[in-house]
Amino acid sequence: MIDKSSKGLLSESSKEKIEGLICIFPDKQSIILPVLHVIYDQLGYLDSKAIKEAASITEIPDVYFEEAASFYTMFPLEPVGKYLIQVCHNISCTLMGAESLIDYIKEKLGIKPGGTTADGLFTLVTVECLGSCGTAPVMRINDTYYENLTKAKVDKILETLRNQA
């Protein structure tokens, strides 16, 4: 049940999107992953309170959403920085210098993988193959891919994001 005493986390637009998903699939249970995407798109992570709200809208027990949330690694389960930097460290990217790319970002932002900068702007994580091995080394920031990275490119990307924030 939704806690009626406090305001919900899901925006009206997210709620509408979730309601819109309900009749799309031959089996309603299929909306679990699409609903997680809606929550992630709005909040940048999967908040368990938001999951409960979504569960209530869909009338699917929240445990199913929680189970999926714990399985699919692209969704953070805790709040992260405004920009989630996901650096690939799989084989092709490693061959092209991903490990020193990670060291460079670590040093530049003063955080380790898993950490967030004090201003809340950047969270750094390492990820497995992003499917862009021909343009390695590669990182993804939120939903955007950045490819063929060099130190100069990383400097520019981070500076642009900092200025946008």
């Binding site: 089996d27 249970q29 299929s30 992953l33 699409p34 995407h37 199913y64 399985f71 690694t73």
Partner: peptide, 27 residues
């Protein structure tokens, strides 16, 4: 035709895992 977005799990490229994922569970 419906687009279904996964959640970053390599296993879901395995055809039976793809189906269990699409059915709404862990892959």
């Amino acid at each position: 035709i419906t687009i279904y977005r996964g959640g970053g799990a390599y296993i879901c490229g395995e055809e039976t895992a793809l189906m269990t994922s699409l059915e709404g569970g862990k892959g």
